[in-house]
């Protein structure tokens, strides 16, 4: 898989998402500085970097929550630079949030149904008159929502308010909500944060299934290096808003620039977050 990192150079047409020299400035602060980034179809690619490296800012630019200062952005063959989030979501990009942003006072099923927003017709007249088309759509939407909740493993909790779920299940519900629009790319912003090892393992399996069974590309931001290194097919490292390395996990973890960014010096250690002991099983 080590050639994935270079695939962008010769396989332009298979890239779902292409960012060129994408830059975001907040006043005098350059949070993301001229980053080139591509996302190939049906892969799991990761974006890592120390805290404050600009990863979430980069996600926010891709999904339209931030208007990038400079650069080019193409998604599914369309120019999405500076487009509003709902248009980008309509093209097939969805995301989860670093600090879980579920609709807490709505049930789990309704959360997933909101995720289906772009796929539902919901015409005003059909709704108002409760036409059969509207009733069918609602019923089938609920069925699909349950199917998706089964996929992430929280199908027994459909009637509960999202805010009442335990933390790990909230993360899964957020993923289900993101998948509900049948996206071609799903952006996961630190999905393993706060998860125990067992849940993290399960999450890794879930990401593989998202790629293999749904054919959906996963773009991952994560601090849990073990997860990143085992699940990713390509890793991009940001530091202070700049891309400092990109390539297969093994190459990136031995990159002196990356080691310096994480540890401050080149002492030969693998990328670690201080919580995980480096093990061979991770690679």
């Amino acid at each position: 898989m080590s050639d994935i990192g270079t695939a962008q150079h010769h396989a332009q047409d298979t890239e779902l998402l292409v960012a060129r020299e994408l830059t975001m400035r907040f006043g005098g602060l350059t949070a993301v500085d001229a980053v080139d980034f591509t996302v190939p179809a049906q892969r799991i690619v990761s974006l890592i970097g120390p805290n404050g490296a600009g990863k979430t800012t980069f996600f926010n630019m891709l999904t339209g929550l931030y208007h990038p200062t400079e650069g080019q952005l193409t998604f599914m063959g369309q120019d999405t630079f500076g487009r509003p989030p709902h248009q980008i979501a309509q093209l097939g990009m969805s995301r989860t949030f670093q600090n879980i942003r579920l609709f807490r006072e709505m049930t789990c099923v309704d959360n997933v149904l909101v995720g289906m927003h772009t796929k539902l017709r919901g015409g005003f007249l059909a709704t108002m008159l409760r036409l059969p088309s509207h009733r069918h759509e609602e019923r089938e939407g609920i069925e699909l929502a349950r199917e998706l909740m089964r996929f992430v493993g929280i199908h027994e909790r459909h009637a509960e308010l999202a805010g009442n779920l335990p933390y790990g299940d909230q993360r899964r519900l957020e993923i289900a909500r993101a998948l509900a629009s049948r996206p071609s790319v799903v952006l996961l912003d630190e999905p393993a944060a706060g998860m125990n090892p067992q849940e993290t393992y399960a999450l890794e399996g879930l990401m593989h299934r998202i790629r293999d069974e749904l054919g959906c590309t996963v773009l991952l931001i994560e601090h849990e290096m073990k997860l990143v290194m085992s699940v990713s097919e390509r890793v991009t490292v940001l530091n202070f808003g700049r891309k400092i390395a990109e390539g297969a996990p093994q190459d990136v973890r031995n990159d002196p620039a990356v080691i310096e960014a994480y540890l401050g010096s080149s002492d030969g250690a693998v990328v670690a977050d201080g919580y995980d002991q480096p093990t061979e099983a991770a690679s």
Binding site: E105, H117, G122, T127
Partner: peptide, 22 residues
């Protein structure tokens, strides 16, 4: 309905709602 859920989503979290395509 689709619209009613969109309203509630906006009430709960407008940013997340827009990221869902609303």
């Amino acid at each position: 309905s689709k619209l009613g859920r969109a309203w509630m989503a906006i009430r709960e979290d407008e940013t997340a709602a827009s990221a869902m395509g609303i």
